[in-house]
Computed example of a mutant assay.
Amino acid sequence: MRSTVSNENEYRLARSRKLESSSSDREAKALADVSNQYGVGAGTTGKSDKRKPLGGDIAPLPQTNSKPNVFSSELVPARMPQKRQATESSTNLIGKLHSETSASHKRSRKIDYEWQDLDEEDADDPLMVSEYVGEIFAYLGELEYKTLPQQYLHKQTHIKPKMRSILVDWLVEMHMRFRLLPETLFLAINVMDRFMSMEVVQIDKLQLLATGSLFIAAKYEEVFSPSVKNYAYFTDGSYTEEEILQAEKYILTVLDFELNYPNPMNFLRRISKADDYDVQSRTLGKYLLEITIIDYKFIGMLPSLCSAAAMYIARLILQKSPVWTGNLIHYSGYRAAEMRQCVDLIVQYLVAPVEHDEFFKKYATRKFMKASVVCRSWAKKAVQEGRDLFASELQTTRPQ
């Protein structure tokens, strides 16, 4: 009886070892199949032959502030510390953040003007979030520098300023055809400019880049975004739906999915609060502000600065006196002297011949109070008469 039990135990042990061996073989084979499928095997050391959707075989632009490769073996310590390092308390971090924010975003650092707390009247309206509005715009001021495109046309050897002008004008036409929000156009051009600041784009892919940028911006800003079929149809069959989707993925990958862009319209609305929400100056300001994204000379200028300069010229055109007050200094963050370069560039654009036809026609309609016609006629007259747009009598440090 004992010999029978012993033989049975030996049989079970041998059978168990055999099953474990076959199971491990199957697991190793399955892992090998997955490695081959996703390119983890030995064949992945070579470069992929797949072309980029927008850049072709051209290498990306050199970056001055290039990030280190976090996957490099040099950055990985030989032995991980056994004990977790102590960190700052949350209270200290919050205090440090507030101190840095308040120090870096006071553009008009010396408070030598009078201003009124216009947010106080909105204290009972929870939608206006008056208790947080200061911190919100301080955060937007920080984002301005993170999402600011660099002047890239001197690096993009294939692209000339005239090409960008044609591309942006076509983008404005598509934006109008789809009846999208103004914020969508601002974000689309910012995405396009930031991408070209980082990657070289072939000439025959520029339209695809503009289409993909507007496609991304509409998804981010609109409640109901047009489908990819509409974009493919608007390109007259130049690009398929699949190509637009691939371009979308590639653009977002290059930008690291960073779409938290402080839209210039937010700053213009903030400044309009100090302008008593005047409809006429707001409409002219929209046209003047849109010039700063249409013309390539404004690439690299802060959105808040462009918004303040647009409101300054709008009030000049409407002959408001004084043009720039203490409230406008406070809620825009800029004095008149700090806007001189931006104001001069806008006036130069208005005096020059019409370069962007679709953009001009858009604001020549009654819907926009014929802003493009009014602003151009004023600028030509002001230049002919040699007016001083920054005369001291046009400015005051008082609230009104």
Rank of each mutant, 00 (worst) to 15 (best):
R2K: 13
N7C: 04
E8N: 11
R12Y: 13
R12G: 00
A14I: 03
R15T: 05
S16I: 06
D25Q: 11
T45A: 07
K52A: 13
K52V: 00
I58A: 13
N65K: 06
S72G: 09
M80W: 14
P81M: 08
S89P: 01
L93T: 09
K96A: 12
L97F: 12
E100H: 04
S104E: 12
R109L: 02
Q116V: 10
A123P: 02
P126R: 04
M128E: 15
E135H: 04
L140K: 15
G141D: 03
L153V: 10
M163V: 00
S165T: 14
D169F: 01
M174K: 08
M174R: 09
H175Q: 06
F178L: 15
L181H: 12
E183A: 15
L185H: 02
R194G: 07
M198V: 10
D204T: 13
L206D: 11
Q207H: 12
Q207F: 03
L209A: 03
A217G: 12
A218T: 15
K219Q: 10
F224G: 03
S225W: 01
S227G: 12
K229A: 14
Y231F: 13
T235N: 05
G237P: 09
I244S: 04
Q246C: 09
I251A: 06
T253N: 13
Y261S: 06
P262N: 08
P262L: 10
R270N: 12
Q280K: 10
Q280I: 10
T283R: 11
T292F: 00
I293Y: 14
I294Q: 11
L302T: 00
A310H: 02
I313D: 04
A314T: 05
A314W: 06
L316N: 05
I317T: 07
I317C: 09
Q319S: 12
V323P: 01
N327V: 03
R335S: 11
A336F: 02
M339R: 02
Q341F: 09
D344Y: 08
L350F: 08
L350R: 07
V351Y: 05
E355V: 07
E355M: 12
H356I: 02
E358Y: 08
K361G: 10
K361R: 15
S372I: 06
K380W: 01
K380H: 08
A382F: 09
E385V: 02
G386N: 10
L389F: 12
A391V: 06
S392R: 12
R398P: 02
R398W: 12
